[in-house]
Computed example of a mutant assay.
Amino acid sequence: MAVTKKNVKFNAQGLQVAGILNLPEGAENKKGNPAIVCVHPGSSCKEQTAGIYAEKLAELGYVTLVFDASYQGESGGEPRFIENPAARVEDIRCAVDYLTTLDYVDENRIGILGVCAGGGYAVNAAMTERRIKAVGTVVGANIGRVQRESGDPLKALEAIGRQRTAEARGAEPMVVNWIPHNQEERKQAGITDIDIVEAVDYYTTPRGQSANSPNKLKYSSLDAVLGFDAFHLAEELLTQPLQIIVGDKQGAFGSYRDGHELYKKAASTKKDLFVLKGVSHYDLYDQPEPVRKAVEKLGAFYKENL
């Protein structure tokens, strides 16, 4: 099905969030279209993997909305490059708000799909955003857990406190990179984990790089990330139909483990965990065959539940 892309903006807590609205052919001329909010990974943007899924789901007949997180990409907000879980979750609520203003969208047929950290944020938002009727994740990861396990969280919080004090006294903001800038830098750091190797390949080469994903992170914003648990209260509040998709080639980001944890924890009575054999975290970002299989599974899931 042909898809029309529209650049849109919507309000999120006083900020203008930049998005891409994907419209299936003829969608604007009929009522009652189902819609899906697509949420990008940490460090990512609307043009990358979440945008790929948004377009492919639109080809199946869903109105889809993918957007840059507040403070990132083409969206508004200062300071730049912060990763704030509360803001990321609020962005999702505001994306749902925006969809409900479109007269060709059925407000009772809105779903969500999140990739990597976006999957964790999608789950977290859906627990208290009951307008979301179906939840999908592709290599969904609990970004708080990832950060806590990447080093000593207490030492990191002490360092963040010192940095905030310095910035309050006039020091320049400390902006760090999410991942090594290239494979040579990664090798020099002695990093061999498959997720980091493939992240560098995806984000820093023509394969996936985008000007809206500059590999920059305001260091002090990690305090909120370190205290965040994307799956907190899922056993009580996550009741919507749930489709989890992961690959079984495991790396440092732990999406395979998080997928199994979420499946066990979610209160959803209708839930499924789909494991792709021989597939890595980043294969499910953009590689044709894994993405095809994921979209096929998601298409059937949303058809049944939206």
Rank of each mutant, 00 (worst) to 15 (best):
residue 220 S to P: 00
residue 218 K to D: 07
residue 238 L to V: 07
residue 265 K to C: 09
residue 253 F to N: 01
residue 265 K to M: 14
residue 212 N to V: 03
residue 216 K to S: 07
residue 210 S to Y: 03
residue 257 R to G: 13
residue 234 A to P: 07
residue 256 Y to V: 02
residue 215 N to I: 11
residue 212 N to G: 01
residue 239 T to I: 15
residue 232 H to Q: 15
residue 217 L to G: 07
residue 214 P to M: 13
residue 257 R to C: 11
residue 230 A to G: 03
residue 213 S to H: 06
residue 240 Q to N: 05
residue 224 A to N: 12
residue 239 T to F: 14
residue 266 A to M: 02
residue 260 H to V: 10
residue 224 A to Q: 15
residue 227 G to H: 12
residue 258 D to G: 06
residue 258 D to C: 06
residue 240 Q to K: 08
residue 221 S to C: 12
residue 228 F to M: 06
residue 249 K to C: 06
residue 216 K to D: 01
residue 235 E to S: 13
residue 241 P to K: 02
residue 242 L to M: 03
residue 214 P to T: 08
residue 247 G to K: 00
residue 253 F to Q: 00
residue 220 S to W: 01
residue 253 F to W: 01
residue 247 G to T: 11
residue 221 S to I: 04
residue 246 V to D: 09
residue 212 N to C: 08
residue 217 L to K: 10
residue 221 S to G: 05
residue 248 D to Q: 05
residue 258 D to I: 03
residue 255 S to C: 11
residue 254 G to Q: 12
residue 250 Q to T: 14
residue 262 L to M: 04
residue 264 K to D: 15
residue 238 L to F: 08
residue 249 K to M: 07
residue 225 V to M: 07
residue 258 D to S: 08
residue 259 G to N: 07
residue 240 Q to C: 04
residue 259 G to S: 11
residue 257 R to Y: 11
residue 265 K to Q: 14
residue 236 E to F: 13
residue 263 Y to V: 01
residue 263 Y to A: 04
residue 227 G to N: 15
residue 266 A to Q: 02
residue 246 V to C: 10
residue 233 L to V: 06
residue 258 D to W: 02
residue 219 Y to H: 10
residue 250 Q to M: 14
residue 249 K to N: 04
residue 246 V to M: 09
residue 233 L to C: 14
residue 235 E to Y: 07
residue 231 F to N: 03
residue 254 G to M: 11
residue 214 P to Q: 13
residue 231 F to W: 11
residue 227 G to L: 13
residue 266 A to P: 11
residue 233 L to S: 15
residue 227 G to P: 02
residue 258 D to H: 11
residue 221 S to Y: 05
residue 260 H to C: 12
